[in-house]
Write a protein that binds this DNA or RNA. Structure first.
Lengths: 248, 248
DNA sequence: TGTTTGTTTGCGTTTTTGTGCCGACATTAA
DNA sequence: TTAATGTCGGCACAAAAACGCAAACAAACA
């Protein structure tokens, strides 16, 4: 990775999380902490961030589209970390939108080489930060609620793709009803994704496990892997394990 | 391989991968790294890429989506104000990306009822702020440079639309070469838009009037209306007026 | 045709830059 | 306080860039 690329990446991370640790960055980018420190020093000189003991903070002026506060951010970050490990170089990945998916995008290793198909504007913007990720945006009518594209065109496009893996940000999941939604259009999109992907991964915070909404996307067997912030041994999840789901 | 060929090849690689290494290119093309470096230096001089230690990066990629300060913001706001008046309730509107288009999105009257087709992520996000605007996002491969979707699929979709009006954020315009671009993929998209719309409006700051770039989108007669921050009576614009363009 | 002129390229050599490592020192937390 | 952790400066090494030079080549011209 080139120096400049690295610095852009760092800057992006800083502005995203408002703070970074040298140690973390060093691990992510796989260079010595020394190098990171020097980068931080340079960027600080240019006034692009504020260097502090142990890492750096973002300058206040920096606003971003998704500066909105995310509910249960730490949990989602934890989930994203686990989920990111499922993606390998060269894969075709299909993703929905939602804050958990955004965190997944942020958790991806910077050098990952893969092709991402998405219906989500915000996710696409996150993927853009990764130099080696090719992004295919699936177009159609834009749903202002869900901030994803929905409609027949989008569904048709999704069905044309044979993705290796598909990540679903999940609103509600339980054993009897499976994956459920409360928006018809979103359901259709997710349904299309489930059928197009070899492996279906549902990302959900523990709170939403064992809840249901009105419209079914697919039953519990449509999902292959369930990622939550809980340890896989947790009581709550044993029932899902029994149904043959992989738990992370 | 001729020098020129080599340079176009390099430029192509840069725009494709967002980054190239001198060492790689040297191997691929089988010339010395020295020669590659000289090529990169030339291309960097022409502003077509950014040279860094070890190779080069594409223009724009290293900017983060959100934090960029907009160049000539006041001028662009002025242009946006004028352009917004061209849109009426019920219209089908086609737009590219770029900062001027973003300003246009912000300048739209809040109650406007229309359908917007766009290839730009950032523009789509702006349109979302307007409750009565329906947004159709045109999907395809996402260009990290231009932050718009590009490719055959997108072009085909654009051609299916019969839009009332089309707004082009403009890089360069002059009488003899018409509307020009420096990115092949972007040119294709713009070209598709020009042919699909009843009325073609070019938005450009005065500075870019009477400049040209390498690749032609359409000649001067392909454009119906030119919006700049200057008064329509301005000397600079009289030549365009003579060509039959409406000046705002 | 042969000469001249200018451009382009490759090859050493020297300089600069980027990075990692080490040790002394500073800061933080228990 | 001590122990752990982060920082800073110097050093060393490797990779890349810059520079000068000469060979190769092409174009221009008498």
């Amino acid at each position: 990775m080139l120096k400049k690329e690295r610095q852009t990446y760092i800057l992006h991370q800083v502005n995203l999380h408002n703070r970074v640790l040298s140690a973390d960055l060093s691990q992510e980018i796989k260079v010595s902490e020394d190098t990171i420190r020097r980068d931080l020093a340079e960027l600080a000189d240019q006034g692009k961030l504020i260097k502090v003991h142990g890492g750096a903070l973002s300058q206040g002026y920096h606003f971003s589209v998704h500066a909105q506060q995310v509910y249960a951010l730490d949990e989602k970050k934890c989930i994203a970390q686990k989920a990111a490990k499922l993606i390998q170089d060269g894969m075709f990945v299909l993703t929905t939108g939602g804050t958990t998916i955004i965190e997944l995008a942020r958790a991806l290793p910077p050098e990952l080489k893969a092709t991402f198909f998405t219906v989500s504007l915000t996710a696409a913007i996150e993927y853009m930060q990764h130099p080696n990720i090719e992004i295919i945006l699936i177009g159609d009518k834009l749903s202002k609620n869900a901030q994803i594209t929905v409609g027949g065109e989008a569904q048709a496009k999704i069905k044309q793709i044979k993705a290796d893996i598909c990540f679903l940000g999940t609103n509600a999941i339980d054993i009897t009803h499976g994956l459920t939604e409360n928006d018809w259009e979103v359901m259709q999109i997710k349904k299309a994704m489930v059928t197009s992907a070899q492996k279906v991964v549902a990302l959900t915070i523990a709170e939403k496990v064992n809840t249901a909404q009105r419209i079914q996307v697919c039953d519990i067997h449509g999902i292959h892997t369930l990622v939550t912030e809980l340890a896989p041994e947790s009581q709550v999840l044993s029932a899902y394990k029994k149904q043959g789901l992989e738990i992370l």
